[in-house]
Amino acid sequence: MSRQLIFELGHRPAFGREDFLVGPSNEAAVAMIDAWPNWLGPTAALSGPAGSGKTHLAEVWRAAAGAVRLDLSALGEADLPALVAQRAIILEDLARLSDREERALFHLLNLVREEGAALLLTSRAAPGHIEVRLPDLASRLRALPHAELGAPDDALLAGVLVKLFDDRQLRVAEPLIAYLTSRIERSISVLRDVVEALDRASLSGKRPITVPLAAEVLQSLGRG
Rank of each mutant, 00 (worst) to 15 (best):
L80W: 03
P49L: 11
R186N: 14
V84C: 04
P24S: 15
G76K: 08
E8A: 15
S220T: 11
E131N: 10
E8I: 15
S52P: 00
L21Q: 13
L144K: 03
S139Q: 06
V22H: 08
R183P: 11
A147R: 00
L203K: 02
R87N: 12
S202M: 08
L94N: 01
L156I: 13
P24F: 06
L91N: 01
P49E: 14
L164P: 03
L137S: 05
G53C: 02
K163W: 03
A74R: 14
V60H: 04
S2W: 05
S47K: 02
D93H: 05
N38C: 00
L105C: 05
L164E: 10
P135S: 09
G222T: 07
L97W: 00
L80C: 03
P175S: 06
L149A: 02
L218F: 03
L176P: 01
I33T: 06
A215F: 01
R124P: 02
L80I: 07
F7C: 05
V84W: 02
L191H: 09
K206Y: 00
F106I: 00
L134C: 03
L191I: 13
D19C: 07
I177W: 09
G66E: 07
V194F: 08
D136C: 12
E59R: 08
L21R: 15
F106N: 09
H146K: 08
A155K: 07
P13K: 07
E27I: 10
S2K: 12
V84I: 07
K54M: 08
A88V: 04
I89N: 02
L137A: 04
E27A: 15
E59H: 15
F15V: 11
A158Y: 02
A65H: 09
G76M: 02
I209W: 10
V195W: 00
A197N: 09
L57M: 05
S139G: 11
R62L: 09
R62S: 11
V60Y: 00
D153T: 06
R103K: 11
V160Y: 04
I184S: 12
V172Q: 10
P145D: 14
D199N: 13
F7G: 00
G23F: 13
G128R: 07
L9I: 04
T43E: 02
R207K: 07
F165R: 09
D79Q: 00
W61S: 04
V211E: 11
S52K: 08
F20Q: 10
T55M: 04
I184K: 06
H56A: 05
A28L: 15
E92F: 01
L80K: 01
L46N: 01
D34S: 04
G48F: 09
S73K: 10
L221T: 03
A158K: 12
S204E: 14
G53R: 03
I177F: 14
D93E: 12
L105M: 09
I6N: 07
G41F: 01
S189Y: 13
A58M: 10
W36P: 02
H129S: 11
F15K: 11
A78F: 03
